[in-house]
Simulated assay, not measured.
Amino acid sequence: MQGCPSSLIGNGPVTLSEGLSLLVSEHGPLRKQLEALFSFCNQVKTTKEKETSFNDLIKEVTEFSSNLEFHSAREEDILFRMMEVYLGKEGGPIAVMEYEHEQAKGYINTFLSNAENRTQSEEEMIQNAGLIIDAYHTLLDHFMKEEQVLYPFAEKLFTAEEKELLNEKVSTKSH
């Protein structure tokens, strides 16, 4: 194949196959959870009852982390591995996507690790809430890249058989 791989995307809208549509559909609920996390972070910053808001934030981040892990594991273990056949493992869009997964999970895991210390100052609670705000921005940007670039790219790249295989694999891996 010669030329720029991004030429596969084209200018028009792309209708995604079932497996890719399923992955995209998971972004909506994750975005809603991110918006709620963002609100909790702002409460931690502004309320006098920081400890209560921070404890609520811990609970919500724990639930979100589980949902994010379910989603990202299927991307990493299935979609990205299938795309590597065409794009290679070093550099390129898959390396960027995996880096962003690591970055977001790093913010979340650092927050959860820090949250184990139940005697945090108000300043520490605010700093730790800032980690979740960093994850929020990273993930919103990441989801947009997947939806606008990566998934349409995969749609044009994969054969009908590969699309069917992707759908089987992402549909059978349960939460």
Results as ranks from 00 to 15, higher is better:
Val170Phe: 09
Ser25His: 10
Gly88Tyr: 08
Leu30Arg: 01
Ala115Val: 03
Met82Phe: 02
Gly130Asn: 05
Glu100Val: 03
Val61His: 02
Thr15Pro: 00
Val149Ile: 15
Asn128Asp: 15
Tyr107Phe: 15
Glu123Pro: 01
Ser6Lys: 11
Leu34Thr: 00
Ile132Lys: 00
Leu87Asp: 05
Asn67His: 13
Pro13Glu: 11
Glu164Thr: 00
Ser17Gly: 14
Lys50Asn: 04
Gly28Leu: 10
Asp77Lys: 15
Pro93Thr: 10
Gly10Ser: 07
Ser6Asn: 06
Ser174Gln: 13
Gly12Glu: 14
Glu63Trp: 01
Val149Asn: 05
Glu76Gly: 08
Arg74Tyr: 00
Pro152Gly: 08
Glu116Arg: 15
Ser7Tyr: 06
Leu87Gly: 05
Phe111His: 01
Phe143Ala: 12
Leu22Thr: 07
Leu8Glu: 09
Glu116His: 07
Pro5Ser: 07
His101Asp: 06
Ile126Ala: 10
Gln33Trp: 02
Val85Trp: 02
Ala95Gly: 05
Lys89Leu: 03
Glu161Gln: 14
Gly3His: 07
Glu155His: 09
Gly19Pro: 05
Lys89Trp: 02
Leu150Ser: 05
Pro29Lys: 08
Ala73Arg: 14
Pro29Thr: 06
Asn128Gly: 02
Val96Met: 13
His27Lys: 08
Glu60Asp: 12
Gly92Asp: 10
Gly106Ser: 05
Gly3Ile: 05
His71Gly: 10
Leu20Asn: 03
Pro29Met: 07
Glu49Met: 08
Lys89Met: 04
Pro93Gly: 07
Glu124Thr: 09
Ile9Asp: 04
Gly28Thr: 12
Tyr86His: 14
Thr138Ile: 03
Val44Tyr: 06
Leu139Tyr: 00
Leu131Asn: 14
Cys4Tyr: 10
Leu22Lys: 15
Arg74Val: 02
Leu20Phe: 04
Ile132Thr: 01
Glu18Ala: 14
Glu122Cys: 04
Glu146Pro: 08
Glu51Gln: 14
Lys32Thr: 08
Cys4Val: 05
Ser121Gly: 07
Gln120Cys: 11
Val149Leu: 15
Glu162Gln: 15
Lys48Val: 04
Ser6Gln: 08
Leu34Asp: 00
Thr159Ile: 03
Pro13Cys: 04
Gln43Glu: 14
Asp141Phe: 07
Gly28Arg: 13
Thr138Ala: 13
His137Ala: 06
Leu157Gln: 13
Ser39Glu: 13
Thr172Met: 12
Lys59Val: 06
Pro93Val: 15
Phe111Tyr: 11
Gln33Leu: 08
Met144Asn: 11
His71Ile: 05
Ser174Val: 11
Lys163Tyr: 00
Gln120Trp: 01
Ala115Ser: 12
